[in-house]
Design a protein around this nucleic acid. Structure first.
Length: 269
DNA sequence: ATTCTTGTTGCATC
DNA sequence: AGATGCAACAAGAA
């Protein structure tokens, strides 16, 4: 589930614990979530340290403890963060539980185990894996030219697949890509290199617009998006396009379930 | 029982 | 070398 705005929503779920110190850590170190991580060091180092910062970049999160302990979190497909204000029992899918001095717990759960925890103990400004991240799509470094250059590099791939590439579009996921292409009136199977100048401008604007809208609606309280987005109509067969009233199509494009409005988004080859 | 999945990675092939 | 496409990962939901 988690794309840009959902990840932001989950990041905020941990903020109530900010400033508190970690009293005890409970984890399932054998799970795939911790692949490549020294979970013994993680548990030892974080115990007694204070939660000092909560960062997000695209779909990645980074939580700082003290001044040199860094916990990276990626939610994968089904990961969630929550803060439980009372003492909790560790459930089957609660792979990491930080019991805080205030009596509450920071919990990371993930039934499907596609998520990932990273850990770094370093006096550097940020850990290696938090350096050299691509510009956020809402930053001023994410320019029209920067986007166009990538479309030309990935000229042969369907634009749907290109928008999902985190190296250039951090935070965009399956539903956002469909929403963006629908608003920009671009067929998802269009080869990236074949998109006209005019459509590229429109695509760029829609990337920023959908990102802003998603953060505003989902990123803070996870409200239900309005019905004039594609969002509420895209999940199952038989949906109706809010623009044309016509029937939406669903098909796999770029290896992912894709929804579009055939009359509204025509494929020109 | 079977098929589906809002993400990423590793590998085969071009 | 770089781009592209697809299977695999794992478990719950429909």
């Amino acid at each position: 589930m988690p794309e840009l705005a959902e990840v932001e929503y989950y990041r905020k779920r941990w903020l109530p614990a900010m400033g508190q110190s970690v009293e005890r850590i409970r984890l399932h170190p054998e799970k795939r979530i911790f692949r490549g991580v020294d979970s013994t060091a993680l548990a030892r180092d974080l115990t007694g340290s204070t939660f000092t910062a909560a960062l997000r970049h695209g779909k990645q999160m980074c939580f700082r403890f003290g001044d040199r302990h860094w916990l990276g979190v990626h939610l994968g497909m089904t990961g969630k963060l929550r803060f439980a204000s009372d003492a909790i029992q560790q459930a089957k899918h609660d792979h990491l539980v930080l019991d805080m001095q205030g009596g509450g717990s920071m919990v990371f759960s993930d039934p499907r185990l596609f998520g990932r925890i990273l850990y770094a103990n370093t006096a550097a400004v940020v850990p290696d894996w938090w350096r050299d991240l691509p510009p956020e799509v809402l930053s001023k470094e994410f320019t029209q030219e920067w986007m166009n250059g990538f479309l030309d590099r990935r000229a042969g791939a369907p634009i749907k697949a290109v928008l999902l590439m985190q190296e250039r579009f951090p935070g965009i996921g399956n539903w956002m890509a469909d929403e963006i292409l629908w608003r920009a009136r671009i067929h998802p199977a269009t080869r990236a290199g074949r998109i006209s100048r005019v459509k590229r401008r429109r695509l760029y604007a829609c990337i920023r617009e959908v990102s802003e809208d998603a953060l505003a609606v989902i990123g803070t309280e996870w409200n239900r998006p309005p019905d004039d987005w594609l969002f509420n109509h895209r999940w199952k067969d038989g949906g109706q396009c809010p623009k044309t009233g016509g029937r939406l199509r669903r098909e796999s494009i770029g290896g992912r379930t894709t929804c579009w409005s055939p009359k509204w988004q025509q494929l020109r080859v």
